[in-house]
């Protein structure tokens, strides 16, 4: 069974859904290019999370000469799952400075209006999906060449 889906009629309640996401995050996802974990292991409501994205190498295997400015950089993000998660998306902001079209340059907040996954949020989307989608976004034509702040600086 995949996280959050649980078939057509069964709705996994918030807390049990977040426990599933926690366990998946603890096991480690794929090649490790995105990962996440809980900030406060005492918070019974599992609200604050830190996500990590390793900047994508290049656009595609065929176009391997086109690299991205994000290659190999490590980005830290904060995700906040409120009481209405996963009916509503978490709030997402970059902690590590980044220059990206969907990210507020002052605050690091991922602007829902400019990031489709948050605008068209569906209950079965997960924090992993958000991180994976943001990583894809970094490699998109309008983001992959943007001049970036020095590495290791924070909002």
């Amino acid at each position: 069974m995949t996280i959050g889906s649980g078939g057509s009629s069964v709705v996994v309640p918030r807390n049990f859904r977040l426990l599933e996401e926690l366990e998946r995050g603890e096991k480690g996802i794929g090649d490790g290019s995105v990962s996440y974990g809980m900030d406060d292991s005492d918070d019974i409501y599992m609200r604050s999370w830190t996500g990590t994205i390793i900047g994508p190498h290049n656009v595609s295997a065929e176009l391997s000469l086109i690299s991205t400015v994000h290659e190999g950089r490590i980005y830290q993000l904060k995700l906040f799952c409120d009481k209405d998660y996963p009916e509503k998306p978490p709030s997402v902001r970059f902690h590590t400075r980044i220059n990206m079209t969907c990210v507020n340059p002052e605050t690091g907040v991922v602007e829902p209006k400019k990031f489709g996954m948050l605008t068209n949020w569906q209950r079965e989307f997960t924090m992993e999906d958000i991180l994976t989608q943001l990583r894809k976004e970094m490699a998109s034509p309008h983001n992959r060449k943007l001049v970036q702040p020095p590495e290791g600086t924070y909002f």
């Binding site: 069974m1 649980g6 078939g7 069964v10 996994v12 309640p13 807390n15 049990f16 426990l19 019974i44």
Partner: peptide, 21 residues
């Protein structure tokens, strides 16, 4: 506590946890 019966119940166990510390 909170308890949830997953789709597979009763072939799979209920999920239970304490909300009180």
């Amino acid at each position: 506590l909170e308890l949830f019966l997953p789709e597979e119940y009763p072939m799979a166990a209920p999920k239970v946890r304490f909300l009180t510390k």
